[in-house]
């Protein structure tokens, strides 16, 4: 049997988290799969669990001048249709899993699971999203890129959990999300690209590209993005292959059950090239 805690409020949840170190459990769509046991037996969760999915305080999706605030336990199915949510994130979320899973799964869960193939993480990193970590000692806010440090690894402390995710209001004009899954629905990603840009008067003012499932963490290279910023479209056209080549060494996928490294690399670079083409066409 697994010890479990069912707090009635956020403050009680924070207390239980500090006292017990129980693992935050929202929809359970990752945990219940990871710790499943054989037919007719209960899942073998190695830690006590702290249920958070039911706390209304954590389920809100709201907007203020700083951006969109998505509660840790907001459901993917709600995020996908919320008017406050950036369309790239909505698209990403609606391509995750299947309707029944989206009715249970949460954004904080996808982040906390810290899989390099976590689809929401890829788009959130492109959107410069932050996570707000709460504990009895107070709150701290980290860029998502800083929060996730490796496959399944985050900097979350044993008395903290994610309270909300903040997506800044100010975003580039254009975006393009491409998930290459194992099939069209209810699929894990072989690779994904969350790309954004602002082009004003034939000049690239902002350029972002985040690649999922092709490295130990989502790959976003702010140094390379800085090199693209400021280019005219003519320059962008001339430099396309140079940009693609600059990304190449940073995309370091593996062979696994779902795909092959050589494919993942080639398809990722092809998508980057396509994104640059789309910018030049203005379409």
């Amino acid at each position: 049997m697994t010890d479990s805690y069912y707090p009635k409020s956020l403050s009680e949840a924070l207390e239980l988290r500090r006292e017990t170190g129980a693992i935050p459990f929202a929809g359970g769509t990752d945990l219940m799969v990871r710790f499943r046991a054989q037919a007719g037996t209960l899942p073998k969760l190695p830690h006590p669990v702290l249920f958070l999915g039911h706390l209304e305080e954590l389920r809100q999706i709201s907007m203020d001048s700083s951006g969109t605030h998505i509660g840790a336990s907001a459901l993917l199915s709600d995020i996908g249709v919320s008017e406050h949510v950036h369309p790239m994130l909505s698209e990403t979320v609606m391509l995750m899993a299947s309707p029944p899973l989206r009715n249970l799964a949460t954004l904080a869960g996808n982040i906390g699971n810290a899989s390099p193939a976590g689809d929401a993480v890829c788009s959130l990193i492109a959107l410069d999203a932050s996570v707000v970590l709460a504990s009895l000692s107070g709150e701290r806010t980290l860029l998502l890129e800083e929060f996730i440090t490796g496959p399944g690894k985050t900097v979350m402390k044993s008395d903290e959990f994610i309270r909300e995710i903040v997506v800044p209001a100010d975003q580039p004009d254009r975006y393009w999300y491409r998930k290459v899954g194992t099939r069209k629905a209810n699929a894990l990603s072989k690779l994904s690209l969350s790309a954004m840009a602002t082009v004003h008067e034939h000049r690239v003012q902002d350029f972002r590209a985040a690649f999922g499932a092709v490295g130990p963490v989502v790959i976003r290279r702010r140094d390379l993005e800085a090199q693209v910023r400021g280019m005219t479209l003519d320059q962008l056209s001339r430099e396309t292959e140079g940009i693609v080549d600059a990304y190449r060494p940073h995309i370091i996928p593996i062979d696994d059950q779902r795909s092959q490294a050589v494919y993942r690399l080639q398809a990722s670079l092809n998508l980057l090239r396509r994104w640059i083409d789309l910018l030049m066409q203005g379409g």
Binding site: T182, R183, K184, A185, N186, A187, L188, Q257, R258
Partner: peptide
């Protein structure tokens, strides 16, 4: 198109519904 089933050291490499891919109604 989808159902790749490989052997690795005599064992099937794809052995869950997440890795052995059968079509959905959308495919």
């Amino acid at each position: 198109s989808l159902e790749k089933l490989e052997l690795k050291d005599g064992k099937f490499f794809q052995h869950t519904m997440a890795d052995y891919i059968i079509p959905t109604t959308l495919d």
